[in-house]
Design a protein around this nucleic acid. Structure first.
Lengths: 235, 235
DNA sequence: GACTAATACAAACGTTCGTTTCAATAAGTC
DNA sequence: GACTTATTGAAACGAACGTTTGTATTAGTC
């Protein structure tokens, strides 16, 4: 019963303080949620990994859902801030660089939360999972955290690509989100298809490929309507 | 207790035969899985929606997982076949059209299974969900169904774009998958961001925008290495 | 040292999960 | 009609779920 406190005090000579139960719960659940999804991880698994009592989770967070929400906002804020910071370094009034805007949007999403503790890309994967989760609660958390900065980037893209209609830009922004989330999810599909040659887990590799790809898509001239539809009419 | 068979025989004058319990289970669970995900839907919800007994599910399918597997393969086969059919109509030996290859890959995925019964895009969404599901079982089902045709399309793309290195092509194929799945998932994020102007649920709209976007990305000249990396070194 | 608030603990709560059992019924065969 | 097979029915199984309860322990204040 004295175990944890004894350990904590015996180590506070500066070498390695054992984190608080609250922090350990957040760390453990972030990793587990990312690895297996929210529904698939029970709170008993979490408290076992964190080494705390079952009731501690509800004491500190109130509910499993609130735990997810707190983890998410704690991670999301630095990402949104870094995005805005990188964006603010770009002069939007003078034909801003599309590539720099894309990197300002993508790099924080793919890197922040990596290689800090545990398995590294835990939060990155978790976020990608939530983005395609059907439950309303997941999407609400996500929208609250990122919709504002997304609006700013749409505006920046409009400045960089004045000849692209707004509606077209919104579609392409949607496509960019899909590319980003799928890369973040690191689902293993492409690794198995290419025998590991293509690995979205190598973040710098991924960024180096994704930015030129998306930039070309964004810059392409919008097609005249129904070029696609008309071709299949005879069928 | 005689309800179902009485209903069935009384209607078999050709007007509307009540489908078998097995079929009703597949229809109901396809919709429910697509809407809420596999874990989130209990088999009691399914049998209630299908109007059958709880034991009927295990009688016909053996397990919940097997039910998912059968639904998936039943839908996936027509998609893979239609992809191959569309691809076979393209002459790969003579500078094949990139746009046609992309359409052959994307259109079956976005359309097949739509507007047949129920809510229409059920299977399309379900498949997108499984693609980002972390559980191994989901991905195994998906890989079995589609990896073969994916390989053929990678080959076709290499024919259409001989100047793009194989590794680059694989990355771009990965990005295409992300764009496709996110559009199929129809997560609602972009609708709320654009007040409904951009709606991935309108399939022909989506195809008309996604194909030129991806084609431009695929055609773009591969960047020299480390253009991106070198810029952030000072940081 | 007494009092108070914060945290930890073990145990149980009621519910829901996927699955199984076994008897009852329907349909098919001879 | 007897016999066999296919399907359905109601009920229960054990396990796991998120959550709550009540008590013990710690830490801080006077």
């Amino acid at each position: 019963m004295l175990k944890s406190s004894a350990l904590e005090t015996s180590l506070d000579d500066g070498s390695a303080i054992k984190p608080s139960a609250r922090q350990r719960l957040m760390d453990a659940s972030e990793q587990l949620f990312a690895e297996h999804g929210w529904n698939a991880v029970s709170i008993r698994t979490i408290v076992a990994a964190a080494g705390v009592n079952l009731a501690a989770l509800h004491y500190h967070f109130g509910s499993k859902e609130q735990l997810l929400s707190e983890i998410f906002t704690a991670r999301a804020k630095p990402i949104a801030l870094e995005r805005i910071r990188l964006l603010s370094e770009i002069d939007l009034d003078d034909a801003p660089s599309l590539e720099r805007i894309l990197e300002a949007f993508l790099r924080p999403a793919l890197t922040i939360g990596s290689d800090v503790r545990f398995g590294g890309r835990a939060f990155v994967k978790l976020r990608a999972r939530l983005a395609t989760e059907p439950e309303a609660v997941s999407r609400r958390i996500l929208a609250n955290a990122f919709d504002e900065s997304s609006g700013e980037f749409l505006h920046a893209l409009a400045r960089a690509l004045p000849e692209i209609p707004q509606a077209e830009l919104e579609w392409r922004f949607h496509f960019m989100l899909g590319t980003m989330f799928y890369t973040m999810a690191d689902a293993g599909r492409i690794q198995s298809l290419t025998n590991g040659r293509c690995d979205p887990g190598r973040v710098e590799d991924a960024l180096a490929h994704i930015i030129p790809f998306l930039a070309a898509g964004f810059r392409s001239k919008p097609e005249l309507k129904s070029t696609i539809r008309s071709r299949r009419r005879p069928k």
